[in-house]
């Protein structure tokens, strides 16, 4: 049973220069009690998906279509009070930069207690006790509740953000690049914390990252996004072991393994396309080393390639050979 099911989600940003189709028909499932990694380079629309789930979007964003079904309710059709009632109690958020997401003029403890009191119905005393408990849970010294955000290190702030996210025992946590700003060792510690607490409280997590090694380290499921669309998805083990889409293969080459620092890093040449332009055919084609003429002809659908694992590539059938070629750095180097 999926806790959250997104189907054909479309989100546009309006601007003077035109429309950016940041999310263009995204579908995926978040099973109960699992961590789903949403991965892709910067600018692929991951944050837009994450924020659409929380229901708090930038002013110029327009939801142009699709459904976000959370426990049999389409979040996109809720009334304001209904949507507000779900926030934080059911769906919480861990931001990329906890420095900016904590209010600089209040003590961290006050900010933990704020949500407990305003949204959790705690009185002051119970809120204070719960704050201590939450801090201990995420591995922070409760004495630091009296500190201001700027007195925390990056890792501590991220832990504080986790504590705040878990304050009301949500079922679903959306984490947008929760470890991106941290150095590798701290990254692992924070991911460990997320993993442990997720398992302990049976929370579902959508973990947004541009770093596929984070997915490999922490996720049960993975959804690979490119240019506002899902290009590959499935169980993390299967997708990472047997990637079918060349973009996934490319991402894999571009990041160091979190466990070992061996292996040569080969970035994918170029950058994701401008989402305000129309597309024809595979959006990855201009950067794909395996592109053929027919790739550029018409849209490529996501098709299952093994149980629970699907990808959107016309050469999916040749995945085995392509994987072999993709392991060669030379494949990715353009003259």
């Amino acid at each position: 049973m999926s806790l959250l099911s997104i189907s054909d989600l479309r989100v546009h940003y309006r601007a003077e220069s035109g429309l950016t189709r940041a999310v263009d028909g995204v579908s995926f499932e978040v099973p109960e009690g699992q961590i789903v990694g949403l991965v892709g380079e910067s600018g692929c629309g991951k944050t837009t998906v994450a924020r659409a789930i929380t229901g708090v979007m930038p002013q110029n964003a327009v939801i142009a279509g699709g459904r976000i079904v959370y426990r049999d309710r389409n979040l996109l059709e809720l009334s304001r009070p209904e949507a507000k009632a779900l926030r934080w109690r059911e769906i919480a958020f861990i931001p990329q930069s906890a420095m900016n997401s904590l209010d600089p003029v209040y003590r961290v403890g006050a900010q933990v207690e704020e949500v407990l009191i305003a949204r959790g119905g705690h009185d002051r005393r119970r809120a204070a006790a719960r704050a201590v408990e939450l801090f201990e849970m995420v591995g922070l010294d409760p004495g630091r509740l009296r500190d201001y955000p700027h007195q925390f290190s990056g890792g501590m702030r991220q832990r504080a953000a986790i504590a705040i996210a878990l304050a009301l025992n949500p079922k679903l946590v959306i984490a947008d690049e929760p470890v991106t700003a941290l150095d590798v060792i701290v990254q692992r510690q924070v991911l460990d914390t997320i993993k442990t607490l997720q398992a302990r409280f049976q929370i579902s997590v959508v973990l947004v990252t541009h770093d596929i090694s984070v997915v490999a380290y922490a996720c049960d499921q993975v959804v690979v996004m490119y240019a506002g669309q899902v290009v590959e998805s499935g169980p993390a083990a299967a997708v990472l072991d047997r990637p079918v889409h060349p973009y996934t293969m490319g991402l894999y080459n571009a990041f160091p393994d979190m466990q070992s620092s061996a292996g040569m890093l080969v970035p994918i040449d170029g950058s994701p396309p401008d989402l305000s332009q129309p597309f024809a055919g595979c959006r990855f084609a201009p950067r794909c080393p395996f592109a053929r003429d027919d790739c550029r002809l018409s849209g490529v659908e996501n098709r299952p390639c093994e149980p629970g694992h699907s990808a959107a590539c016309v050469r999916a059938a040749e995945a085995h050979q392509l994987r072999a070629a993709a392991r060669e750095p030379a494949t990715w180097l353009r003259s």
Binding site: V56, S101, V115, A118
Partner: peptide
């Protein structure tokens, strides 16, 4: 526009 204001919205604060 600061992120902590966005966060406050996500928290469902008034």
């Amino acid at each position: 526009h600061d992120e902590f204001v966005t966060m406050a919205r996500m928290k469902g604060l008034s």
